[in-house]
């Protein structure tokens, strides 16, 4: 219940009232990714331009001839959101410098899912971050290719059953550990890397606001529960995100100029992984031994991270 206590009575008063992402979008019922997009828009405000990759958020929001977006938005292809965003940033910079547009500060955002970021889009992302464009890149991670029908990506966690890494008599689903994308971004030595989850809206908004005010590239990794792909009840989308954080599966932290800081929302003591796995159909086939092995890895990874937060 601490979320509610922290959250207090003030939440709506602290949050931008303007809905920059409209009702009528076609996201599945209980989609935490579209909730994340809605909160991101609130945090960043009107003076934002979004370049989106192909994916769930693109198709649910832009059914021609209508759009859910109330901020400028462009979609070009799947693997190039970061490159398109970098071009928008360069274009706006040149036009502002030459006095061809007004000189307000506009933040450019590139966004994609886990597949669009960690698999097919990682080259364009690495390039854009290395070049130092003044932009935010957001990975909305729902841990598989949900838009195309729940195929595995390099963001799919060990043991999860997907349509291309299904659990069966001879398989326990995903055979590989989730790619550690935030660390790959930290290795780019960009000014700001953060993880967020919409289950913690104030932490979420604070980190987006911080990224907005940083001149240079920021990377935000957003954990986005997908009830459809995870085979979990739609009403638990927010509580499931909270469990991912509380079990240490998805720790909330930020890295500013190489300095790690755990989010104050992180619990002192982690909950057991089982409480997070149990309500999700994608993990239902796992044996106790398999869960124990994954638990071991989650604990180890979490300890590694807290060490960095202590010393880096």
């Amino acid at each position: 219940m601490n979320i509610v206590e922290n959250f207090d009575l003030f939440a709506p008063r602290l949050i931008n009232k303007k809905e920059l992402f409209s009702c009528g979008h076609r996201a599945c019922s209980g989609c935490a990714e579209v909730l994340s997009v809605r909160l991101m828009c609130k945090a960043l405000g009107d003076d934002t331009v979004v370049a989106s990759a192909t994916g769930c958020m693109e198709i649910v929001s832009s059914m021609f001839p209508t759009t859910a977006w109330r901020i400028p938005w462009i979609h070009v292809a799947f693997e190039n959101a970061a490159a398109v965003a970098s071009g928008v940033e360069a274009g706006l910079k040149a036009l502002r410098k030459k006095g061809k547009i007004d000189d307000r500060y506009i933040k450019v955002v590139g966004m994609a899912g886990d597949g669009g970021t960690m698999d097919i889009g990682i080259q364009a992302l690495s390039g854009a971050m290395e070049r130092g464009h003044d932009m935010i890149y957001v990975c909305f991670d729902n841990e598989a290719y949900m838009n195309t029908g729940i195929q595995r990506s390099s963001g799919t966690p060990m043991g999860a059953s997907t349509t291309t890494a299904p659990a069966g008599k001879a398989s326990s689903g995903q055979k590989t550990w989730k790619k550690n994308m935030p660390e790959i971004m930290v290795a780019h030595e960009i000014p700001y890397v953060a993880t967020v989850c919409p289950s913690y809206p104030l932490d979420f908004i604070r980190k987006f606001e911080k990224a907005r005010n940083i001149k240079g590239p920021s990377y935000i990794h957003c954990f986005s529960v997908c009830p459809t792909g995870w085979r979990s009840p739609s009403e638990t989308a927010v509580s499931m995100g909270r469990l991912a954080v509380e079990t240490g599966v998805f720790p909330l932290f930020e890295v500013e100029s190489g300095h790690y800081r755990m989010s104050p929302d992180m619990p002192k003591k982690l909950k057991p992984l089982r409480s997070y796995f149990k309500p999700q159909g994608r993990f239902r086939h796992l044996t106790d031994a398999e869960i124990d092995a994954i638990q071991e890895r989650v604990t180890a990874e979490f300890n590694k991270l807290t060490q960095k937060a202590k010393f880096l």
Binding site: V76, N80, A83, G87, A90, G91, L92, R131
Partner: peptide
């Protein structure tokens, strides 16, 4: 002009698309 040293031709075309869409 902004000369963007992209990391591939795919990103070259992506970036000029983005900049042209911004009005450049």
């Amino acid at each position: 002009a902004e000369f963007v040293t992209v990391e591939s031709e795919h990103s070259a075309m992506s970036a000029v698309i983005g900049a042209a869409a911004a009005g450049a």
